Computed example of a mutant assay.
Amino acid sequence: MRDAFPFWGQLTPKQKNLLEQSVGCSSYQKGERLHDGAQDCMGLILVLSGHLRAFILSDAGKEITIYRLFDRDICIFSASCMLKNISFDIYIEAEEDTRILLIPTPVYNELNQTCLAVSNFTGQLISSRFSDVMWVMEQVLFMSFDRRLASFLLEQATIAGGNVLSITHETIAKNLGTAREVVTRMLKYFQSEGMVTLSRGGVTISDSKKLERLAQFEK
């Protein structure tokens, strides 16, 4: 834990003891939801292993991924109730079996108010996550769907460590905030252009260079 939090060395012995006594470790299975919007203020999440997806929901129930959390990544918006004038309906679920450390909101709030290093870290973390959100919004507003899909497939290939992706059209649609039918049509077009090969419950990237050129077009 001492290596997980960059502010550890700036804490007093009392604060270190408080943190050690309060931090909990939890495990979640793939597909399990950890956080259910602004009313669920569970605390500061640090990923020990696995990875999580943070997303928002439209009034119509459509999802769009705003950022992902991997080993040693930290989520501040799961403790958003302690942040004045900030309230986000952000949902978090496990994309694979995941273990986390959790600092309860009251404990982190106390550290944030009494330790300058923690307060500075919180500000940096909020700024970083806002940048993630703004990048996604920029994509949605200004990038064509074929480019967004190409970028998403390349990102998934990096996460998977290979070009064979075990992912459904429905899952892709949830991540990109669109309808499954739109994804299916575009993937079929990609297949006709030799960029991907489609199979039941999966997508194989056939020509990553062509996908990269599409993703970077007009950047």
Rank of each mutant, 00 (worst) to 15 (best):
S166G: 09
A160N: 12
T158S: 13
Q124G: 14
W135C: 06
S119W: 14
E193P: 07
R200T: 15
G202E: 13
M134K: 07
R180Y: 12
E193G: 08
G201Q: 07
I167V: 08
F190G: 00
L149Q: 00
A117V: 04
L116F: 08
G177K: 02
S127M: 14
T184R: 11
D146A: 08
V164A: 08
V136I: 05
L141G: 10
W135N: 11
G123V: 09
S151E: 05
F190V: 01
Q139M: 15
F142L: 13
M143S: 11
I159R: 10
L154M: 07
S127W: 09
G162W: 12
T168C: 08
L187V: 10
L116V: 02
S131I: 10
C115F: 12
L153K: 02
L153Q: 03
L125I: 06
F145I: 08
I126W: 04
S127K: 12
I167N: 01
I159E: 08
N175M: 00
K174W: 12
T171C: 15
E138N: 11
L176K: 00
S151Q: 06
R147L: 00
R147P: 02
L141S: 12
E155C: 08
Q124C: 11
V133M: 03
L153S: 01
D146P: 05
S144L: 15
T171H: 15
F130S: 05
T122S: 06
L165M: 01
L149E: 00
L165D: 00
A117G: 03
R185G: 09
C115K: 04
M143R: 14
Q139I: 03
N175V: 00
E138R: 09
L187T: 05
T178Q: 06
V118W: 07
S151R: 07
K174C: 11
L116P: 01
N120Y: 15
L141T: 07
L165W: 01
A160I: 04
Q124A: 13
L125F: 09
G123I: 11
N163A: 12
A173K: 01
N163G: 14
S128F: 10
Q191D: 13
A117I: 04
T184N: 13
S192E: 14
R180H: 13
S199A: 11
F130M: 08
Q191Y: 03
G161I: 05
L153E: 02
V182K: 02
R185C: 08
S144V: 11
K188C: 06
L116Y: 10
S131K: 14
E138W: 13
S127C: 11
W135M: 10
T184Q: 15
